[in-house]
């Protein structure tokens, strides 16, 4: 059985076990809906007061928000093992158990958790995307759909990669959750708006170090018909790969860190 199949089977089983507590599950999903709804409301309120942001119309802003929301929370649903579960895997010694099995560690960590509650947040994101694409009068083409799929796929990898930083710190038992939060959750908060509104240092940060701009904004702007910085259309299909590159780099660092992993207990 290959890795993808194993992952899918694990997800299926974990979903099943979460649904053993249906009331609690529903309550929490509802809470997520309200929470992400609140985030979106902030954008609506901003639009209410300011009408537009540089060249970006309200519809454009909803679209950017939706792209980030869908990407970030898809990552949280399917990558929960990395985005939330890793510190407790180390603390409880569960990571040892994973090391005793003949599979890759990242695979197994990914197989260890799922967070279906976040589907509510994804729903808010999808609503924002639909609203945004309508108001921006986007003419959908195969190319644009492709650019969007690619952006979301690499965006998920990018976010997973950023959360791997936390895992790496965790292996070296450095307590740094708040520091890593700055780049993960901070990146999400910042890059739900197009990157060109930020001053140069922040722009560079989100283009090079945590390339949300390359992965999400360039294709989004292409879809909206207002290419970021006037870049040619083909960049929208190439630049998202930056997310994949970042993931790969951090994956290698993570593998290196695992060699220094020192399990807890005597």
């Amino acid at each position: 059985m290959n890795t993808v199949k194993l992952y899918l089977r694990s997800m299926q089983m974990l979903m099943k076990s979460q649904l053993q507590y249906p009331v609690s599950f529903l309550m929490q999903t509802l809470a997520q809906l309200v929470m992400e709804g609140g985030e979106f409301m902030a954008v609506l309120l901003i639009v209410d007061r300011f009408d537009h942001l540089n060249q970006w119309t309200p519809g454009n802003l909803y679209f950017f928000f939706g792209m980030m929301s869908v990407t970030f929370y898809l990552t949280e649903i399917f990558g929960r093992g990395i985005t939330g579960n890793f510190p407790s895997l180390v603390r409880t010694g569960q990571l040892d158990t994973l090391l005793l099995r003949p599979r890759g560690i990242v695979t197994q960590v990914l197989c260890s958790a799922v967070d279906p509650r976040r589907v509510a947040c994804v729903a808010v994101g999808v609503a924002a995307l639909i609203l945004g694409s309508r108001q921006s009068a986007v003419q959908w083409t195969t190319g644009k759909a492709l650019a969007m799929a690619e952006a979301i796929l690499f965006g998920v990898l990018l976010i997973l990669g950023l959360f791997l930083i936390e895992a790496i710190f965790c292996i070296h038992s450095v307590k740094s959750i708040e520091l890593v939060n700055a780049i993960t959750y901070g990146g999400r908060s910042a890059c739900q708006y197009p990157v060109d509104i930020f001053p140069r240092p922040l722009r560079l940060l989100f283009t090079i170090a945590a390339p949300f701009a390359l992965t999400l904004h360039v294709p989004s702007a292409y879809i909206l018909g207002k290419p970021l910085y006037g870049w040619p259309a083909w960049t929208a299909f190439v630049s998202p790969a930056a997310g994949g590159v970042l993931f790969l780099m951090l994956y290698l660092l993570f593998a290196r860190a695992m060699r220094y992993y020192r399990s807890t207990g005597s």
Binding site: M1, K5, R9, S10, M13, L14, K16, S17, T97, P102
Partner: peptide
């Protein structure tokens, strides 16, 4: 490996399901 104080099976799922996932993990 069996750790007396640590579980390697899945808490909320039937034992047989855990086994069948282990079957996949160990091929």
């Amino acid at each position: 490996v069996v750790f007396g104080q640590r579980s390697q099976l899945w808490w909320d799922v039937p034992v047989i399901d855990s086994f069948s996932l282990l079957k996949d993990i160990y091929r």
